[in-house]
Structure formats: C-alpha cells, structure tokens
C-alpha cells in the first residue's frame, strides 16, 4: 500500500511537470506580447527593452522556463526582477503577475479560501440531496416519488447554471430582498456564520444543482442494481429486517462508486467554479483564472492551472486509496 501511494505521488509530480511545460510553451505560441502589457500607456521602445530585461523576456524560452521552474524545485525559492529592484519569492514560487506585479503565490492564497468554501459547501449539498433523493427514488421505484425525483433530476441536469444563478439573484436578492447583496467581507466563516451562509447559500445552490441531479440519477441506478444483487437476497433469506437490508447491505455497496466520482468532482471544482464565481462576484480561483487569461497574464495562468491540476490529480490518488479501504476486493500492491 505504501509503495503504491509513493508511486502515485511520483506520478503526480511528473504529470504536473508535463502540464507546466505544455501551458508555458502554449502561451508563448500565442501572439500576445507581455512586455507591451506591462509597460502600459506611455510605451516606447526603451521602456519595452527595460521591461524585457527586467522580466527576462529576451532570454530563450527554455531558459525562461528553467527560471520559472527553479522557484518550484528549489526549496529556497528564487529572486525576482533585475538588478536593483529585486524581491525574494519564497517556495513554492510561482513568479509574479504581469498585470499588478503581485506574487502569484499570494494571489492564489487569497483566492483559494472563497473557492474552497464554495466548492465544499456545494459538494456537501449535492452529495446529501442527491444520495437521499436517489435512495428514496430507488426504494419507491415506479411510485410517484420516484417519478418526481427522476423529473427533478432531468430538470436539474438540463437547467443552465448561468440562467439559474441570475434567476436566484433576481428572485432572492433584487426582487425579494430576502438576502443581502453579496459582500466579499463575508466570504469566510470568520465574518460570522449567518453572514457567511447568507453569502454562500445561493452560490451553493447554483453550483450544486447539476451535480445533485446527476447524483440522484446515479444513486437511484446503483441502488436499484444493488438491490437486485444476490447478496441482498441472501440478507433477506437470513431474516434481516428491511432496514438492515437496505442500509447495511444495499447502501454501502451502492455508494462505493459514488465515492469515486465525488472525489473527482470535488477535486475538479477546487480549481475554481468559473461561472458561479462570476455571477456572485466571488473573488476565487475561477475569477482569478478568467482575469489572468483575458489579461495574457502568463504567471497567474500557470499558477492557477497548476493548482487546479494538483487538486484533480491528488483527488484521483485519494479516491483510489479510499476505494481500497471501502472495497476489500481492491488490493493495491
């Protein structure tokens, strides 16, 4: 098991390395000129030369890439800027933004909080509602509750997030006045739980709806399949009560594949929920990534891509290891 985890972590490093290289060289293949971006309105050739020297844009790409990677490989971080205007960037150094000159590590650290709360809150919401609704539907297969949940699930899957988000804002904030306008200061629980929930409740619903619908359908299908398994018949033949049959024998087997998918979905969301963050103007990774892409801000793009990739790959590992614990048939060696 230990060997397996070590091997997977090494694989992860390789994958992140490959992603960084691809992103880096892909960016420079676009016609954007970052020096122009930095030097601003009163730009002239000297200014550009100055910027190029300061940021090292004159160096061959491979050298620039090497310099960028040194900040991630070297535990001491690296020095940014040219002679005279140096600043230290400690590990893990992701360079600084071309737009505002801030260190990318700091920008990401600021943005990751709201994204974390948004993603985990939504995940809990869709997991609980999806599994509950799916379970009920499976147990009442063919009855009205089943038909209702299948209908709701279809609605949820097909309803565009963008429309739902703005609709919720309109109904609950603008027209209904049931919730305050979002204030970025409430984006962490330290602002008090009530404002925190008021801030996130609509984004959570918006982000969770599609997955809640998918998980409802998934749970329902898994549960129906599981309840037709031979071991369920055995459990009944033993004389177990229906509650034990459903929860102890049925649900545990039916939820196993959902654990896998849940881990991957959550991992993917931690890279930023672009549309939802945009609608509710949450200053998270999703917003950061849009801003950086629109602004041709390579270091920030790199940083966000690497963080998102890290969560996806890491979630994969966690899921695989977790699976081995849940299902004894899976032996990792």
């Amino acid at each position: 098991m230990f060997n397996y985890i070590v091997r997977r972590l090494l694989q992860m490093v390789l994958i992140l390395f490959a992603i960084s290289a691809i992103t880096f060289f892909l960016f420079w293949a676009t016609p954007a000129n970052p020096a122009l971006l930095i030097c601003g309105k009163d730009c002239n050739t000297e200014r550009i030369a100055e910027v190029n020297a300061s940021y090292g844009f004159d160096d061959p790409l491979i050298v620039q890439y090497g310099r960028y990677m040194s900040g991630l490989v070297n535990p001491g971080g690296r020095e940014l800027g040219s002679e005279g205007s140096q600043e230290h960037c400690s590990w893990p150094c992701l360079d600084r933004s071309l737009q505002n000159g801030l260190q990318v590590t700091d920008s990401i650290a600021d943005a990751i909080g709201p994204t974390f709360w948004l993603a985990t809150g939504a995940a809990v919401l869709w997991l609980v509602s999806g599994v509950l609704l799916g379970l009920l539907a499976a147990l009442r297969k063919g009855k009205w509750l089943d038909k209702l949940s299948v209908g709701l699930a279809l609605f949820g899957v097909s309803f565009p997030t963008l429309v739902l988000g703005y609709l919720l804002v309109f109904v609950f904030i603008v027209k209904g006045g049931l919730l305050p306008y979002p204030d970025q200061a409430n984006s962490s629980p330290s602002a008090g739980l009530v404002p925190f929930f008021q801030f996130y409740i609509l984004p959570w619903v918006t982000l969770a709806l599609v997955n809640a619908a998918l998980y409802t359908r998934l749970t329902r299908a898994n549960m129906i399949d599981t309840m037709n398994e031979d071991f369920i018949r055995t459990a009944r033949a033993k004389g177990l009560g229906e509650r034990q049959v459903v929860f102890k024998h049925g649900l545990r087997a039916a939820l196993t594949p959902i654990v896998t998918i849940f881990g991957l979905d959550l991992g993917a969301l931690l890279g930023g929920a672009v549309i939802t963050e945009r609608i509710f103007s949450i200053q998270g990774l999703g917003k950061l990534s849009i801003d950086s892409v629109l602004g041709n801000d390579l270091p920030v793009v790199m940083g966000v891509v690497l963080v998102a990739a890290f969560f996806v790959v890491f979630a994969n590992i966690v899921v695989d290891v977790l699976y081995a614990f849940i299902d004894p048939r899976v032996r990792l060696s």
């Binding site: 398994e229 031979d230 071991f231 055995t234 459990a235 545990r252 087997a253 196993t256 299902d327 004894p328």
Partner: peptide, 10 residues
C-alpha cells in the same frame, strides 16, 4: 448457486 455473488463482498 453462486456463493461469490451471494455473500456481501465488503
């Protein structure tokens, strides 16, 4: 008939 599927795998 099939003791593998008739017992709970977990």
């Amino acid at each position: 008939q099939d003791p593998l599927s008739a017992m709970h795998p977990f």
